[in-house]
């Protein structure tokens, strides 16, 4: 059974204010380095608690920089929590940053293979899927060209077609993606809806509050890495909208 269990988890980034240190600089300035190139701690998530099981549809809302994407990446196992624990059981499909990580010199076909293997497919399971992936992307003969010659839209199509070809237990989505031209967008949206209904557990990050209200049964509202409110969709979204409205009013008055 798919299951997400997050206990008191925090994610903290440590970055250098100016640039990375080189070894030479480190040795030469060793003792004074703090004053020259100070470290900055960024708390992207603090003390998050979350339990989700079969059937849960969780929406995450908040401003830019509130920690929504960081939360998703922590659930995907890419960011380890710096404090607390985060355990995820089940086959995860993550739909974010999907256009990253193409091998530019390899053809579209080859990239389908690499990406599918990365998602845990084997040659046997891929054989039955690869034609469907190619057909869905509608890239036709372009698939035999190196990916470096693709336009941004074509890359997006290819990435989307591969990423959504799995049967995930846990689906992690960052924003509903705007993919390609109008016709493809409709197709993509239909595929997304299909995935959302077939996956057994979903976490969706979106700014589209209507989508959240429609598809999610629980919503988490994040601000500066902290949970402001958590609960059934309607009350949380309503409270969020109210808070936003007040904030804009203050901003208008101040101006």
């Amino acid at each position: 059974m798919p299951r997400i269990q997050v206990d008191n988890a925090s994610v903290e980034f440590i970055v250098h204010k100016y640039q990375k240190v080189s070894f030479k600089e480190y040795v030469v300035r060793g003792l004074f380095r703090r004053s020259i190139n100070p470290q900055v701690r960024i708390r992207a998530l603090s003390n998050i608690n979350l339990t989700a099981t079969e059937g849960d549809r969780i929406g995450v809302i908040g401003h830019n920089g509130a920690g929504k994407s960081t939360l998703l990446k922590m659930l995907a196992g890419i960011y380890p929590p710096t404090q607390g624990r985060c355990t995820v059981h089940g086959r995860v499909c993550s739909l974010f940053d999907i256009t990253l990580g193409f091998e530019p010199d390899a053809s579209g076909w080859e990239n389908i293979v690499y990406r599918a293997y990365l998602q845990g497919e084997t040659p046997a399971t891929l054989r039955s899927k690869i034609d469907a992936i190619a057909a869905f992307s509608e890239l036709g003969e372009f698939l035999s060209l190196p990916v470096r010659n693709y336009s941004a839209g074509m890359r997006m199509r290819l990435a989307f077609s591969i990423a959504t070809a799995t049967e995930p237990e846990i689906l992690l989505i960052d924003e509903v993606l705007a993919v390609g031209d109008l016709a493809f967008q409709q197709k993509a949206r239909a595929r997304m809806r299909e995935l959302m209904s077939s996956s057994r557990l979903m976490v969706l990050v979106s700014h589209d509050l209507n989508t959240i209200r429609e598809t999610c049964n629980r919503v988490i509202w994040l601000r500066r890495g902290e949970v402001v409110m958590e609960g059934p969709s309607d009350p949380v979204v309503t409270a969020y909208v109210q808070a936003m409205a007040e904030r804009t009013k203050h901003a208008v008055q101040a101006a």
Binding site: I78, S94, I98, G101, F102, Q119
Partner: peptide, 9 residues
């Protein structure tokens, strides 16, 4: 880096 940022291998 692109793979590292995408999947927890």
């Amino acid at each position: 880096e692109a793979y590292i940022r995408q999947s927890p291998l």
